[in-house]
């Protein structure tokens, strides 16, 4: 745990030079303007989650550029701790993005004079959670490739699993679309849907972490 904490702090230090006020201001202004103009405040969460995905990949970028992975080894930190540290760091980044997004979401709502009712909060929470799961899910697909190939090559190869998801979705919809429509999804118990999504997410998480550890243990610097 001590080493995982070290990695989180070191990764933060590694990307600190990219966490500038200017960059934050750009994201803030862009997200606010887009939310206001489109009159759909939830878009701020998409923008900030995108930023979180980007920033959580930066330690790999700095790793490619400066060799900080070697530095972590020189500190005597084990490969598993590096992997766990990177994943926790990613979740922390996404959590911050979602929390900031909710604050900005409320600000836009206030500006647009669209108070959110209690019933609205339940579906909004589901929306926030979905955005969180999608953005962290993207990182879960990216990280094993980053650990194996580094940032530059991994980023290009990341497109492949994403394309695979798109292609699989298209195939499923193509073959089973009519069947799914007949299923009347709205009638399905929300607990079942949440459980299904939760199980799929957990499987992806476990596979992602195990692959990252496998690749990183083999990696020579």
């Amino acid at each position: 745990m001590k080493n995982i904490k070290k990695i989180i702090i070191l990764d933060f230090l590694a990307i600190q030079s990219y966490l500038t006020f200017k960059n934050f201001a750009i994201y803030f202004v862009f997200a606010m303007l887009y939310g206001l103009i489109s009159k759909t405040p939830i878009t701020v969460l998409y923008t900030l989650s995108f930023a979180a995905v980007l920033y959580s990949s930066y330690p790999y970028f700095v790793g490619d550029e400066s060799g900080i992975d070697a530095l972590y080894k020189i500190f005597g930190i084990q490969a598993k701790s590096v992997v766990f540290g990177r994943y926790i760091f990613m979740y922390l980044m996404n959590l911050c993005a979602i929390l900031m997004g909710i604050i900005m979401f409320l600000m836009i709502n206030l500006a647009l004079k669209q108070p959110v009712q209690l019933e609205g909060w339940i579906s909004l929470s589901a929306g926030f959670l979905s955005i969180f799961l999608v953005s962290t899910g993207i990182s879960l697909l990216q990280f094993p490739l980053f650990f194996k190939f580094g940032y530059a090559k991994g980023k290009i190869l990341t497109i492949m699993p994403m394309m695979l998801v798109v292609i699989l979705t298209a195939i499923v919809m193509g073959y089973f679309g009519d069947y799914l429509k007949k299923m009347n999804l709205e009638a399905i118990d929300p607990i079942s849907i949440i459980s299904f999504v939760g199980v799929v997410y957990l499987i992806v998480l476990v596979v992602s972490i195990r692959s990252s550890i496998f690749f990183y243990l083999k990696k020579e610097l």
């Binding site: 070290k6 702090i9 070191l10 230090l13 590694a14 600190q16 030079s17 700095v62 550029e65 400066s66 060799g67 900080i68 070697a70 530095l71 972590y72 020189i74 500190f75 930190i77």
Partner: peptide, 19 residues
């Protein structure tokens, strides 16, 4: 050096104190 190129000497000191 294995140090992030954008680190200042202060950042280097902080990273080493962690590591």
């Amino acid at each position: 050096t294995f140090l992030a190129k954008d680190w200042t000497i202060k950042n280097v000191e902080r990273a080493m104190s962690v590591g």
